[in-house]
Design a protein around this nucleic acid. Structure first.
Lengths: 223, 223
DNA sequence: TCATTAGCGGAGATATTTCCTCCGCTTACC
DNA sequence: GGTAAGCGGAGGAAATATCTCCGCTAATGA
């Protein structure tokens, strides 16, 4: 979405009309959902349909798929960063901060959309890259804090936390109503959190080393 | 699609040639993977390509998408049944049987393909219906056993177990190599299992009632 | 080793889906 | 109430996907 940090993309003289602003937001939400269900190549007609908007409106707002996906990614990254900031601000204990972040991130379903969309967009975009760093850095800090006060198993790293969130946040395949899907995901998160705590207390070994963010990044950057 | 309730599948006079049998299996495997990554409507050309086989060969073996998906579903259901039988046979304690089943099911990645494919196929097919019942019944028995000897939290039911397996078995989106994906999934399963045990010991309450198979079935049958 | 034929591959005609522009109509805004 | 920002969606062009057909390859069995 037009960020207009300093050099505005397509300078607008007036603010967007109220209905246009509403449609813009509905398109982003619909795009997020459709991408989660059908992948980054999903037909844009479906996005428009779900947003309750004509296809012409979609194209007026987002000139191509790239632009739409980019806006979806930015919104998700900002939401993730907010959740992480909030968790760090509200909780002093590491495990509590981690738990709070996980619950918040799951509620906004933000995590699952990122690997899908970022994979498609590549990493040439500086604004995206920065937003990604900002969010990832905060999450890393949460994980570090939890490691520091010994409340998180030493073998559990960023990669475990991040990818589990992806698994939980993706909607289940098949005709599962959103409410049930949500309920299941949150129950499963609680079980996972209980597992994190338990494994930490008993120091049960996991297979392999602590999996860090670098393990994931190596893939994206290296192949 | 081939119904043939009892009679042999398209009575062949001779057994399939060796290369044909190999191709058949490769097609099933490729179809499973492609469906997991791209959904049940994925292009069949891609299935053939991944199987290392011409598109003509695919169509010779499976006259249409339906037939291919049906074969994938049957194979998955049989593998799931075997894993459940094995778990019950090898473990007397309920929680151990459950854990063994979960690990085996995750290794074959069998669970994730089912909701995708069965959703598309509908439930008119008697052979599929029976295979589904056979598998589900055994899994239900494992869950019941674990409940009976008190090793599984009373609020955790078939639906939690089944859908978590779906989440873990789906490949992560983005360019994650299969080996890492596998490692992560298995680590996360161990954390989940630790959580199941911990939650059971502490009787930490989960949100909502025990979620049974009937909760999932109600959706499929009722909407 | 060779004859037989099951089985293979993939080009390409056909069908389907998706893209995306354009313009007459609607409605938010002042 | 006048103005123009914004809307919807029909429809032609382009991209994808389906699925047949037939000349070629190689597994099989004697």
């Amino acid at each position: 979405m037009p960020g207009r940090p300093s050099g505005a993309p397509t300078e607008r003289t007036r603010p967007l009309r109220a209905d246009a602003r509403r449609n813009h937001q509905q398109l982003l939400t619909a795009a997020r959902d459709v991408v989660l269900e059908r992948g980054p190549g999903a037909p844009l007609d479906e996005v428009a349909r779900r947003a309750g908007v004509g296809i012409g409106t979609l194209y007026r707002r987002f000139p191509d798929r790239q632009a739409l996906l980019r806006a979806v990614a930015l919104e998700a990254l900002v939401a993730s960063r907010r959740a992480a900031e909030d968790a760090l601000a509200q909780e002093s204990e590491g495990f509590a901060a981690l738990t709070r972040y996980l619950r918040a991130a799951l509620s906004t379903r933000v995590s699952a959309v990122l690997p899908i969309v970022l994979d498609r967009l590549g990493d040439q975009d500086e604004e995206l890259r920065q937003a990604r760093e900002a969010s990832a850095e905060l999450v890393q800090r949460i994980v570090d804090t939890a490691h520091a006060d010994g409340s998180l198993h030493p073998q559990v790293g960023f990669a475990d936390i991040g990818t589990l969130l992806v698994r939980l946040a993706r909607p289940l395949p098949g005709p599962v109503p959103a409410a049930l899907d949500d309920q299941l995901a949150h129950r499963q998160l609680e079980l996972f959190v209980a597992g994190l705590r338990a494994v930490s207390e008993q120091r049960t070994p996991l297979a392999g080393p602590r999996l860090e963010r670098s393990h994931l990044r190596a893939i994206r950057d290296g192949g």
